Amino acid sequence: CHSECLGNCSQPDDPTKCVACRNFYLDGRCVETCPPPYYHFQDWRCVNFSFCQDLHHKCKNSRRQGCHQYVIHNNKCIPECPSGYTMNSSNLLCTPCLGPCPKVCHLLEGEKTIDSVTSAQELRGCTVINGSLIINIRGGNNLAAELEANLGLIEEISGYLKIRRSYALVSLSFFRKLRLIRGETLEIGNYSFYALDNQNLRQLWDWSKHNLTITQGKLFFHYNPKLCLSEIHKMEEVSGTKGRQERNDIALKTNGDQASCENELLKFSYIRTSFDKILLRWEPYWPPDFRDLLGFMLFYKEAPYQNVTEFDGQDACGSNSWTVVDIDPPLRSNDPKSQNHPGWLMRGLKPWTQYAIFVKTLVTFSDERRTYGAKSDIIYVQTDATNPSVPLDPISVSNSSSQIILKWKPPSDPNGNITHYLVFWERQAEDSELFELDYCLKGLKLPSRTWSPPFESEDSQKHNQSEYEDSAGECCSCPKTDSQILKELEESSFRKTFEDYLHNVVFVPRKT
């Protein structure tokens, strides 16, 4: 048989008469490798580009789960590009990614509803959504962080984005990388972005840091009482949809009607710091009717980097990364020049730590249904340095008659930039024990000054392991946590139920 035959053949030295091919099969003959313009397919066939392209389009058009959109890589027609490569849609070739590779997620039936953290986790790592997304989240724990972890990498949506009755959302900033909504599939009414009845939605994105392009379709905003109209108009300008909307697409009466839409800028007039305090004062603000001013709200939190936005980490279910302080308005003076500047002394802060701070007014709604208010920009203030805590785990070892090696770990709280350490030492008198000992005694162990690591005695271990207080009263049991108490109650309830079950099964009433 021919060298490319495997198993047997019907005619000697003829690659077209093989029972099976050793390498690849091409047009009725066995070959060692697939010549151009053919590609290896499933490690035994040679196919042309049209064959591989037909497989790709067949799966793409069917949208069946589990099928493969075949691509070409290293002269092979394979189910998908290997790690580190992405497909070129024009020629199906796998090309190296520039940075992290995109991950295209194809949605069944063309859309997916995100109504819980669990459903959001199914899209973790996706960068391109081939379909439409509907966000409908009523509640949950730590929602802002969970949504950002699972949806934060999405850069492109081919269909539309719909935010509907998501009472738990305060902001859409968890879509931190969303840059493009194509609108290839539109919501009824030709809408590519749809926001309806979101009672706590206050911000779409921080438009000073976020760009969003909507290729096709219109915007729809109705019944978002805490979303200011200025935020919607800003989205029109940034996304390129200005002029597409009709009169009733953006409701003037049901958007922002319960919001404090600040239209003035508060400026800080005085800032002073110490290692654990920050004193702030800002310019006074009074609405047209000074009785509408209820006070100020001061927001602050630790910020290692200057990239904080107002609604980071917030949701309507209680999660809030900001510390909020309510401040009463100052006494009002008739003389504008003698107006008191409101302020606040922030206490209990960490030394040498940068804080993000902003302040906003708290006002009631005027009778004319106009909203007044003022808010400052987010500023960054760093507390002063102070003395560091003591170095940890000092170790001293003498390696000769004239040297001592000293080692330690950095302090747990540096409280500033540590530039150097101060080492103090003092000579001590020799131990009298060394002169009084009889060095001729056998088995004498000389006193040693070398360091030995501390260890816990058996008594201390027994005390720590004991669940009861000892007789001397030195140790006591740790208080039980809520989960331990709940577990004990469940076990007790189970024992009672099981005992009742045994009584009912074992003891049967005697027939009379």
Rank of each mutant, 00 (worst) to 15 (best):
G125Q: 14
T185L: 09
N255T: 09
S398K: 01
S119L: 12
R202G: 06
R291W: 09
S319Y: 14
N190W: 01
R182F: 06
N141Y: 15
E109K: 10
K162T: 02
I379H: 04
T185H: 15
N255Y: 04
P287F: 04
S192C: 02
K375V: 07
Y160M: 14
G318K: 04
K242P: 06
K218T: 15
E302L: 09
T241P: 08
Q245N: 11
K350Q: 14
D257R: 05
P351M: 02
L123W: 07
L219Q: 02
K162L: 12
S398L: 02
P394R: 05
T371I: 15
F174H: 06
V324R: 13
L169H: 05
T383S: 03
N141S: 10
Q339D: 14
F296T: 00
L392A: 09
K337P: 13
I232G: 01
A144P: 09
S192M: 02
S192V: 09
A149Y: 06
Q339A: 09
R369I: 14
P304D: 10
E146Q: 08
E187M: 14
E262G: 06
S402Y: 14
F221C: 15
T371G: 05
F193D: 01
T361S: 11
L186N: 05
A195Q: 02
F365H: 05
P330K: 05
L266R: 00
T118G: 15
V170C: 06
T323D: 05
A316V: 10
S338C: 04
R124V: 10
H106V: 12
P330E: 10
L349W: 00
I188W: 03
C261Q: 03
Q245S: 10
Q258L: 13
P284L: 15
Y194Q: 07
K226A: 09
N263D: 04
P288M: 06
W344M: 02
W207E: 01
P288E: 13
I378Y: 03
T213L: 07
V363L: 09
E184F: 13
R164M: 15
K253V: 09
P342C: 06
P388E: 07
N399C: 08
I379Q: 14
Y160D: 01
K162Q: 15
D315V: 08
V128C: 08
H106K: 04
